[in-house]
Write a protein that binds this DNA or RNA. Sequence first.
DNA 1: CATTCATATGAATATCTGTTCATATGATAG
DNA 2: CTATCATATGAACAGATATTCATATGAATG
Lengths: 112, 112
Amino acid sequence: MKHDHEGILKRVRYDLPTDEVLTDLSSLFKLFGDTTRTKILFSLFESEMCVCAIAELMGMTQSAISHQLKVLKDANLVGFRREGKTVYYFLADDHVCKIIISGFEHLLEERK
Amino acid sequence: MKHDHEGILKRVRYDLPTDEVLTDLSSLFKLFGDTTRTKILFSLFESEMCVCAIAELMGMTQSAISHQLKVLKDANLVGFRREGKTVYYFLADDHVCKIIISGFEHLLEERK
DNA sequence: CATTCATATGAATATCTGTTCATATGATAG
DNA sequence: CTATCATATGAACAGATATTCATATGAATG
């Protein structure tokens, strides 16, 4: 690191969010960084669903889905309501949609 | 999976993107799902930078940064230009910004 | 052309992550 | 209260991922 770039560093450091914010941000994106979770979120985009419906839709174990729903729930990306034995999950708010859509638009752009 | 939900499944299946698209989408988000990469992208948001400046900024090895830049480069999130011995990296397009910002807005909302 | 600087890359390692399996919880029906 | 259905959860395992270390490449300089 012999050549100088203190000027730039100073400016960038000034504008850079805190490590805490950056960590939170990447933790958020990490949630979308798994096909199973993305697919779950996309499904809920359309309609609330019970755990076993999601499992059937995705051709996966109820357990696997349940684990992932826990992850999404802990991050407040989904909510749920109980109806008898069945638990229905739904998208918590439409920021989720916006984030996914912003990624989607990038993909579409890439493919032009 | 004893109770019925074929109606919902049919509808959701119809609207769900293909597995290929879902995989691409989560691969994209996975790129933002790491603090080091998010921080790099944020830095470049402000200004193009050479590898060793980024390394210094982040208090990390040149090698570690270089590996991550390769990941971002392979995904076309960053571009680079060479100037003598130095290589400058910059954001490839502003979809990157939009994606990060959409995540950012979610965080801000969460903290209200 | 030998040396130095800036960056890239391959292999190894340690950590993290997602799924599976077995089992637990919690609700309803009989 | 027992059986069954729907879901949750803990432990274990396999695969993915990020960093480190050593080394390679490639450009400029004398």
